[in-house]
Nucleic acid binder design. Sequence first.
DNA 1: GCAATTTGACCTTT
DNA 2: AAAGGTCAAATTGC
Length: 278
Amino acid sequence: MEMGSNLVLDELARGRELVTKLRADIELTTSFSVNARRAVVEDLLSSLEKCISMVTESSPRPQLTESPRSEGRGRGPGVVRKDSEMCKKRRTQAKWTRKVRLGTGPGVDGPVDDGYKWRKYGQKDILEAKYPRGYFRCSHLKTQGCLATKQVQRSEDNPSAVDVTYRGAHTCRRESAPPQAPDDAPPQHQNSRDDSLLLSFQTGLNVKTEGLEEEDSSPPLSFSFPSKPEVPTFSPSSTLDGCFVGGGGGGGWSGAFVSPATSETTNYYFSMSPAPNE
DNA sequence: GCAATTTGACCTTT
DNA sequence: AAAGGTCAAATTGC
């Protein structure tokens, strides 16, 4: 963590600047358009991702390209492979758990497409949970090497709610643009008060850092920004979608986004363990 | 016929 | 050792 520390600091400073910008916008309530806010958020996220990449570039995850594993695995005879260098440390990855509550109305069965394309690669029955957990990965893993993954699990209490846990950063370009081009939202609302209620679902985000190093000493920087989920596109697939970017490796920093919105509160907490520096 | 999902085995982490 | 996560053949849908 010495070589690119200057660059990291530079990126962090940039991120801070963006956050300041965003805060100013929130104070003034309606100074920026939704568009501009999104742009700032995107910039901020990419900046943070850059930092994460810089910090973790020394320990990339060797995998997900062309694993030279011994051909047959799922069905073939027991070919055991002790490749401990592969998924050595999953613990150093940040995790976001987002509770997506689907509305109770009819027709809200559709997925919440956030602009990323996901491919399901597994499903597992979880002990405590009543419903199985689905494992998804960005469809651009092969084409763009995007390492983002997520897992979706239905809440046992609320059949209409699902927990979506994101892992890894999206390095792909958003391309599954809905036909209405949500990035250019029409200036329809004058009160930025409850525009999120137009959507028939509520999103609450709730991430806790697992006890990676049991050392969350420094209070994370906190700021707020409007909870503005993307315009849901009622695509016909049965996949539940949602997406936020995440970081890859041992960063050693943590943060929190706290949004005291009116009707729903969206809290973002993320953290990373310090680089083990093995 | 191709691409995405399903599903059970294999592997990692706790 | 058990639970969780991933891989890939088989299956299904487009």
